[in-house]
Structure formats: structure tokens, C-alpha cells
């Protein structure tokens, strides 16, 4: 395991031929729905329903979609916090799908999670020092003094006062609490971080502090991010590549410039056009999608987006479009990709 050698910062990723750090193949994560007096399984919530994804060493892959599309479940499945129903997840060349608990634990040092809610994810009865240092303790790393130093070190790196380690989470503001969450994820010096909506609970002025910090830390610690968020503008700002999810599937994946400038899937086009831009008078043509996201209990046949798609045709109900390469570095799952356009 030499995945996280800090002394060798990785160059910007996604070069041809380079092996991905994380590789996801055919992953499904279903949750049973129980009903009736016997609590029998009456259905499956197909939160993640067949995803293939590569995350290159050193890149930030943005994962964007609306609530219920399965983006957080996918992030947690990749970390194996939720066991996948089927499929394979490879981390740094090791298949972690069926890894035994003790080997998985060792693997976890190299992959960490940053949570959305900086209040709910911090134990209110533990001091910040113990919250951050707990992971070191759990992995049996370092002596007491070294742990102490490591915690102070990482607190300084994320912009917290190391002398505040004896205080409790409620004594910190929202932005600082998110820094505590980031310090806890980084103290093990992992190579891979899943950031699950890390800024969506924060105010605008605090959000920019945390985003800048995440970008800065990535450079300093040579990190690879899976950045999960619903806000496409935020994802666009931090990501090298962006994957768009809809109802348990990736519908489009490409570098962030292509996603922004030349989106090919009608859902990506609509999602982009739905974002209100902070420029008055700059009215763009907007595609307003009708209706709501269908239930992941019973996704539509064929293409899942067809019920809301402005360009759906009969074939979309019959044949599920595969995720195929439609342009260099850009894969799309649509029979009529590129046909829906928005005037700038």
C-alpha cells in the first residue's frame, strides 16, 4: 500500500493510460422496503443502479444531481460504508468489495469522508482534540505525544487555532465546525476524500472560505476528491471532471468545461439552464422540466429521464441508453445526445 505517498505530489490527473485510484464497475446499491404486518420486503429502493466510474489520482471528480438521485449513497458505497448490492469497487488496485473487516479497516486510513452537517457529525460531548485524534487512536497510530502533535498540526493546516483543542464543538461557528470535520478526515493523511455536500449548510461568505480551503488542501496534501454536491456552480468551481447523476445512474460524465459549455445529455442541459445566475438582465432561455423525479422504487422503463425529457421519443421507453463515449473524454447515456440545445 503506497497509495498515499505525500512526498510525491501527483500531476494533474486523467492522463491516458494512468491507472485510476478508484474504479467502480457495475455497482448497485439497493435498500429493501418492508411493509405489511410480517415486515416482508415489498420493494427495493434502487438508490444506485448500475454505475461505472473511474476516479483518477489527483483529480477532483464532481458528482452532481438532485436530491434522491443516489449521489450520497454512491459516495458512501465507494467508501464501503454502505455495502453494495452488486458490482465491484477497486481502490488503488485492490478490490475492496469483499475485503475482510480487518483489512478494510486498514484500507480506511487512506479513504475518508467529510460530512455535510457539521453539527450532527461531531459528538457534542467530545473535545475537538479528541474528535480529531480519535481516528489516530482507532488505528493505533503514534504515541500519545505524537498524536497530540499531529492533531495540532492538522488544526493549523485547516485554519483552526491549535490551542482551541480543549473546547467543545458548540463553541465554534458553522464554518469552524466544518473545518473540524475536515481536520478529522485529514488527520490520517488519506489519499482519497469523499466530500459529501461539504458547503451546502454554510452561508455564502463562509462557503467561500471552506471551498478555498478544500482546494488549497488538495494541493498541499496531493489529495483526490470525490466532491458530491447539488449545486452545479460549486461543483464546476472545484472539479476537474463532473459526473451528472439521475435516478441512480450516471447520465453524463466529462471534464468540467465540456459539461458547462457543451453538455450533451438533455438532463445536464436542463440542470444548467435551471441555475439562477447572479447577473440581472442576463436572461437566458430556460428549459423548465415538467414534473418531479420519479420514485426510485419503480424507475421508468428504458431511459429513466424520458418522463421529463423534452426530446423523448418512443424508443426511449423501450431501450435503456448505455453510457457511451460521444466526444473525447465525454460519455453520455442518451439516444439523442446533443439534440437539445439552449440559446446562450
Amino acid at each position: 500500500m503506497t497509495a498515499v505517498d505525500q512526498s510525491a505530489p501527483q500531476p494533474r490527473a486523467a492522463e491516458e493510460g494512468a491507472a485510476p485510484l478508484v474504479s467502480v464497475r457495475g455497482v448497485h446499491t439497493h435498500f429493501p422496503v418492508r411493509g405489511g404486518v410480517l415486515r416482508r420486503t415489498v420493494g427495493q429502493v434502487r438508490a444506485v443502479d448500475g454505475v461505472d466510474l473511474d476516479i483518477m489520482r489527483g483529480e477532483t471528480l464532481g458528482l452532481v444531481g438532485e436530491s434522491g438521485c443516489g449521489k450520497s449513497t454512491l459516495g458512501r458505497t465507494i467508501l464501503r460504508l454502505i455495502p453494495p448490492t452488486s458490482g465491484q469497487i477497486t481502490f488503488d488496485g485492490t478490490d475492496i468489495t469483499g475485503l475482510r473487516p480487518e483489512r478494510m479497516k486498514a484500507m480506511r486510513r487512506h479513504m475518508q469522508l467529510i460530512f455535510q452537517d457539521p453539527v450532527g457529525s461531531l459528538n457534542p460531548r467530545m473535545t475537538v482534540r479528541n474528535i480529531i485524534g480519535e481516528a489516530l487512536l482507532a488505528h493505533g497510530l503514534h504515541s500519545r505525544q505524537e498524536r497530540h502533535d499531529q492533531v495540532r498540526d492538522i488544526m493549523r493546516s485547516v485554519g483552526l487555532d491549535p490551542d482551541a483543542g480543549g473546547r467543545y464543538p458548540h463553541e465554534f461557528s458553522g464554518g469552524q465546525r466544518q473545518r473540524i470535520g475536515i481536520a478529522r478526515a485529514l488527520v490520517l493523511r488519506p489519499g482519497f476524500i469523499v466530500a459529501d455536500e461539504p458547503v451546502s449548510a454554510l452561508d455564502v461568505s463562509i462557503q467561500s472560505q471552506v471551498l478555498n480551503l478544500l482546494v488549497d488542501l488538495k494541493r498541499r496534501f496531493a489529495l483526490t476528491y470525490l466532491f458530491v454536491a447539488h449545486d452545479l456552480a460549486v461543483v464546476d468551481y472545484v472539479s476537474d471532471r463532473v459526473a451528472v447523476m439521475y435516478l441512480g445512474k450516471v447520465v453524463e460524465i466529462a471534464d468540467s468545461v465540456s459539461i458547462r459549455e457543451r453538455p450533451l445529455h438533455p438532463y445536464t442541459v436542463a440542470l444548467l439552464s435551471a441555475i439562477p445566475q447572479p447577473r440581472p438582465g442576463g436572461a437566458r432561455q430556460r428549459i423548465v422540466l415538467a414534473g418531479d423525479v420519479p420514485s426510485p422504487l419503480a424507475p421508468p422503463s428504458g431511459c429513466r429521464f424520458r418522463t421529463r425529457c423534452p426530446i423523448a421519443r418512443p424508443v426511449c421507453a423501450e431501450l435503456e441508453p448505455p453510457l457511451e463515449s460521444k466526444a473525447p473524454g465525454q460519455s453520455v447515456a442518451c439516444h439523442f445526445s446533443g439534440e437539445l440545445e439552449v440559446a446562450a
Binding site: V204, Q207, S208, A233, V234, D236, R260, E261, Q277, P278
Partner: peptide
């Protein structure tokens, strides 16, 4: 400052 602290598409 508020206007400048929000990420905007294509920034």
C-alpha cells in the same frame, strides 16, 4: 464582497 464570494458557472 458577497457578490465576489459566490462561485458562478464558468468562473
Amino acid at each position: 464582497a458577497l457578490l465576489q464570494s459566490v462561485p458562478v458557472l464558468g468562473m
